[in-house]
């Protein structure tokens, strides 16, 4: 493998890792704090992309579109939590799987009904198009670098919020022992809404950044959801640090696997890696609940 290809594929891998982290952060926090397995997390990713495409096309301004899409996805997340999913925190995992599976069907079909079956397109502003030379003679798309940068920035911000603010302290307390945190006066209901809508916004952010690269279409969230679940499981459900480490690892393994391995093996390599890691540590790399 030539040095330029190595650099390029490493960037691709870290970029995929950054996207996966944005997805897995919400999944892992929602499970860690509310004990809810949310299969509909991929629908929020899809909604982020659709909202961004619709708002950008309506306003003609990409940045306004992005801001509106993030707000709208967070709002959908908050509504979902308040109106439906909070009733399922104390229910069995089977019921959680069922209700979020039903939500996927509903979200997919409503999107198809409203936006039509054809994939949407939305244009990037000129600043974000084109490419730069990352090495002499090796161009790389600017937008992919932006995705990478945003992902790492959000990861750093999440780290600061969770480790160094009062809200973050409550979230950590809620994740490690919810009844005790509630007994000590943490407003758990507020934490629930905050975590769920923040997780939704992060999924929406991942979706709207993937939109211009892939296609904005119904069902686009499901493949990413599966990868994010793999990340969550490897990292240890509930652990942000685990989600970050696992997201980067899966991003790189998947990218290099597809380049270096035969197609069938390349498509399966992350699942094989997952199985191997779980044989070694069944609770993931950074287990939260001792």
């Amino acid at each position: 493998m030539s040095p330029s290809l190595l650099v390029e594929q490493t960037l691709n891998g870290v970029q995929l890792g950054a996207m996966l982290f944005l997805m897995a952060a919400g999944l892992t926090l929602v499970f860690g704090i509310m004990n809810l397995i949310n299969l509909a997390h991929g629908s929020l990713y899809m909604l982020g992309a659709y909202f961004a495409a619709a708002a950008t096309n309506a306003t003609g301004n990409f940045w306004l579109g992005v801001a509106l899409a993030l707000a709208a996805t967070a709002l959908v997340g908050a509504a979902l939590e308040r109106l439906l999913l909070r009733r399922f925190y104390a229910r069995s995992h089977l019921h959680q799987v069922l209700v979020t599976f039903g939500l996927i069907l509903v979200f997919n079909e409503m999107t198809r009904l409203i936006a039509g079956p054809a994939p949407l397109k939305f244009a990037l502003p000129d600043v974000l198009t084109g490419s730069v030379n990352i090495m002499p003679g090796v161009p790389y798309p600017v937008f992919r670098l932006v995705i990478l940068g945003v992902g790492l920035l959000v990861a750093a911000m999440l780290y600061l919020v969770i480790q160094h603010t009062r809200l973050g302290m409550w979230i950590r307390a809620g994740a490690s022992d919810r009844p005790m945190a509630a007994a000590m006066g943490v407003d758990v209901e507020l934490i629930f809404v905050a975590v769920f809508s923040a997780g939704a916004a992060l999924a929406g952010l991942a979706g709207l950044m993937a939109g211009p690269v892939l296609a904005v279409q119904v069902g686009m969230g499901e493949p990413v959801l599966i990868l994010a679940l793999v990340v969550t499981v490897i990292g240890g459900v509930g652990s942000m640090k685990g989600a970050f480490v696992a997201a980067m690892a899966i991003g790189l393994i998947d990218t290099f696997g597809r380049v270096l391995l035969p197609p069938a093996l390349g498509a399966m390599i992350i699942f094989i890696a997952m199985a191997a890691i779980l044989l070694w540590r069944p609770q993931g790399l950074f287990p939260v609940h001792g």
Partner: peptide
């Protein structure tokens, strides 16, 4: 929840195997 997620991932592993 680990079992649920792992079985889901294995399902996709076999799915991608046949897609390839």
């Amino acid at each position: 929840v680990y079992f649920i997620m792992i079985t889901l991932a294995f399902n996709q592993m076999l799915f991608y195997y046949f897609v390839a």
